[in-house]
Amino acid sequence: MENTHILFWLVKDISWCLVWKLLGILMIAPTLGIALVIAWRTRHLKSELAHNLAIVFWITANSYWMLSEFFGFENAPIGHLTDGKHLAVIPFGIGLGILAWYYLVTKPREAREAQVATL
């Protein structure tokens, strides 16, 4: 499943690069869908879940950015500080936040619990 996911992701991004709008848009669903399935299947492993959720948000941000370019709102002003494509920073940031939480909180907690268990 992971290999198929990579294939879909590459086709989506190549479509974006070549401005093949229909194919790029159609590839969002299988790319994101498989990423969600992978995250669900790894939900019992905290490290895998964190990384797979980060990938889900990465694909979401990447897809939004692609759509903003395809539909011409990437430079449309939104508020005073940003434009259309820069809203992709929200899901990118969520993914980064998940990984930061894992590495700064969850992983050290697991290491401490493992150390206490060996005493």
Rank of each mutant, 00 (worst) to 15 (best):
A88T: 08
I98H: 09
W20P: 04
G84E: 04
A39G: 06
T106A: 08
W40G: 10
T31M: 08
K107V: 08
A29S: 08
R41A: 14
E74M: 05
P91T: 00
G24I: 10
V19N: 15
Y102A: 08
N75F: 13
I78V: 15
N62K: 13
A39S: 13
W20R: 12
A54E: 06
W20N: 13
N52S: 10
A88N: 09
V89N: 02
I78C: 04
L99S: 07
M66V: 06
G33I: 10
L22S: 10
M27T: 11
V56I: 07
Y102G: 03
F71R: 09
W58L: 12
L87E: 01
P30T: 05
T31K: 07
P77M: 06
G84S: 03
T31P: 02
L81F: 15
I28E: 03
I28G: 03
W20Q: 14
T106L: 08
W20I: 13
P30D: 08
F57T: 11
A100E: 08
L36Q: 09
T60K: 02
A50Y: 03
A54V: 05
L87F: 06
N75I: 11
H51A: 12
L49C: 12
R43K: 15
L45F: 14
R41M: 14
V19A: 12
T42R: 13
L49R: 14
G93N: 07
P77N: 09
I78W: 05
T60F: 02
I55M: 14
D83M: 02
P91R: 00
I38W: 11
A76V: 14
A111V: 15
G93V: 02
A88R: 07
W20M: 12
W20G: 06
R109C: 06
K21A: 00
F92N: 03
I98M: 02
A114S: 14
W65H: 04
F57A: 06
L81S: 09
A39W: 11
